[in-house]
Design a protein around this nucleic acid. Structure first.
Lengths: 283, 283
DNA sequence: TACATTTTTGAATAAACATTCTACTTGTAG
DNA sequence: CTACAAGTAGAATGTTTATTCAAAAATGTA
């Protein structure tokens, strides 16, 4: 109902849904070529979002100028303005969230509820991204290594410490032998020698990457230890000294990043390792 | 392995994965500005896909020409050619999202990917629930108490420890004075007396609730200390000895619960407290 | 059929664009 | 400290782009 009213109003559509509705209404008495544009646009929204007028026009079998007329008929200034709606649809509003976030941050209207709302929204997005982009091969390898390791050594400082701390607790509950490496002065590096060749080292580190952690992992890796890393970018220095790398992009607000998505992955790791261990111990 | 070889080859990358790999390899000896491009590109692939050189350059804090150099360094003809890779990634993602979900569901329930998929799905649900059911009054009160406290004492054991550990780190970065209470034998309870009346005690505890934690909070509450608690049920024993209670229902899989939603809330708390402190210290 | 109106076309145009080039800065080896 | 190389910034360039416009075609009406 509301949608139809929106579509009939003379304002320019602001989102993909109202744009579609508008097309539906106006298509009844549209001239031939414009209807051709409408059909093509609805059938190939991606190409509208990414292509140039020339490309799209030739693909749709019309003139570039017709595309402009089409956009103007729908209430837009020109083609470019319409294209932005299609682009927004493609990205899935991720820009909208970050923009809103920045605006709120700048305008100083930071209520606790709005901060929470934004973190929830971007965490959900971050979780979706994890689902889409996770390297399932690396995931499988990591779990297999963790499942077959005699002892799992866990290392992570600063923001990464809660992650390994959580793994320490959860894996411990499953009777997996873990060793949480805590940083107490310069003693840390000497402990590399206590890592057995049947063990595994799980390292979490995020930008800015702690040099101590990278150094430690590097030494262990050099000694042939399996190094399984969890980090936030392929640019992470830990990637070069790791057997497997898991990448997570966390939600952020200004300079502060959540641990929401990372914890989701960590929990999954723990459960999967637990499962795998059960199977191997049974057989 | 294969990925590294691809990245080392001199051909232009043909998909997003090999592009990322290439960036990872070349980033070792990349000059400052190009590395800046690399970081921005990996963190905001969507904007690279849709923006113009001018827009992206200003957002990344570099010159438009630097973006072109960056693309050429990676083996592309120019920026436009590189942009196509990012566009391809954008289109492929939205199409394959449901497809990937289906695959995960079909692959059985005990593969690592399916475990992760389940946790992601239930974490998103849990986040939604948090948004809908959060007690905003309690949230405001908690943040005000944390913002005005002289020192924030943090207490949480077992599964709750990573939460307070994270708050300890994040609040510390904001120059908020915190004291992470660690459990070392029976000494803990004696420390109640060191909590000042201008301080606050933040307690996290989840089922099964650690008696030590509840006992400690009870004593502090009895002495008139503000006790701000984070727990998983109003039936939690901590609720009766708290000034404010925040409730979170976490995603679970069998006997194992994630910390995803809890961390989202914790991050929001930290940021909100940081904001509130900034305001009060400025005025 | 003749006329008025709408629609389309395709060249013309001006703006936006990616890219190149040169002068300048920064870092480095002798 | 000097000389040389590498990297960068910002203006200049030539191309691509969306958009406009006038002429032509199509459509509807009497």
């Amino acid at each position: 109902m509301t949608q139809n009213l929106d579509a009939l109003s003379t304002d320019t559509p602001t989102d993909y849904e109202s744009l579609k509705a508008r097309i539906g209404v106006l298509s009844d008495n549209m001239p031939k070529r414009l209807l051709q544009c409408a059909k093509y646009a609805l059938a190939n929204p991606d190409r509208i979002a990414l292509g140039t007028t020339a490309e799209i026009a030739s693909a749709a079998g019309v003139q570039p100028s017709t595309l402009v007329r089409f956009a103007q008929t729908l209430g837009f200034d020109g083609f470019s303005q319409m294209q932005q709606i299609f682009q927004g649809q493609l990205v899935g509003r991720s820009n909208e969230y970050t923009e809103r976030l920045n605006k709120i941050h700048e305008s100083g209207t930071n209520t606790p509820a709005s901060i929470l709302g934004n973190f929830i929204a971007s965490s959900k997005q971050s979780l979706d991204e994890l689902l889409m982009q996770v390297d399932t091969i690396a995931l499988d390898k990591t779990i297999e290594a963790l499942a077959t390791a005699e002892t799992i050594h866990l290392l992570g400082l600063r923001r990464a410490f809660p992650v390994v701390s959580y793994l320490h607790y959860t894996l411990g509950k499953m009777r997996v032998r873990t060793n949480l490496l805590e940083f107490t002065g310069g003693i840390l590096e000497e402990r590399v020698q206590f890592i057995n060749e049947n063990d595994a080292l799980f390292v979490a580190t995020f930008s800015p990457y702690s040099p101590e952690v990278v150094e430690f992992a590097s030494k262990a890796f050099g000694r042939g230890v399996k190094v399984l890393s969890l980090t936030d970018s392929v640019l992470s220095p830990i990637a070069r000294v790791s057997s497997t790398v898991l990448e997570v992009h966390e939600a952020e607000h200004g300079a502060f990043r959540s641990l929401s998505t990372t914890m989701c992955l960590a929990t999954s790791l723990a459960v999967a390792v637990g499962d795998a261990r059960k199977w191997t111990s049974l057989s």
